[in-house]
Amino acid sequence: NLRWTSEAKTKLKNIPFFARSQAKARIEQLARQAEQDIVTPELVEQARLEFG
Rank of each mutant, 00 (worst) to 15 (best):
N1D: 13
L2N: 02
R3H: 12
T5Y: 02
S6W: 09
S6N: 12
S6D: 15
S6R: 13
E7G: 10
E7L: 07
E7M: 06
E7Q: 08
E7T: 06
A8G: 02
A8R: 00
A8T: 01
K9L: 15
T10L: 13
T10K: 15
K11V: 10
K11G: 07
K11F: 10
K11C: 10
K11W: 09
L12D: 01
K13Y: 10
N14K: 14
N14S: 11
I15R: 01
I15Y: 10
I15M: 08
I15F: 15
P16R: 04
P16S: 04
P16E: 04
P16Y: 05
F17H: 15
F17N: 14
F17G: 15
F17K: 15
F17V: 15
F17P: 15
F18Y: 14
F18R: 07
F18V: 06
A19L: 14
A19H: 13
S21N: 12
S21Y: 08
Q22G: 08
Q22S: 10
A23Y: 09
A23D: 01
K24E: 06
K24Y: 06
K24W: 04
A25V: 10
A25E: 10
A25L: 11
R26M: 11
R26D: 04
R26C: 12
I27R: 00
I27V: 10
E28T: 04
E28M: 03
E28K: 03
Q29W: 09
Q29R: 08
L30T: 02
L30H: 03
L30C: 04
R32F: 06
Q33P: 00
Q33N: 11
Q33G: 06
E35F: 14
Q36P: 01
Q36K: 11
Q36L: 14
Q36E: 07
V39H: 00
V39S: 00
V39Y: 00
T40W: 04
P41G: 12
P41W: 09
P41L: 11
P41D: 06
E42H: 05
E42Y: 05
E42W: 05
L43D: 02
L43K: 02
L43V: 04
L43S: 02
E45W: 05
E45V: 06
A47L: 08
A47Y: 15
R48G: 08
R48D: 04
L49A: 10
E50D: 07
E50L: 10
E50N: 06
F51K: 05
G52I: 15
G52A: 14
G52T: 14
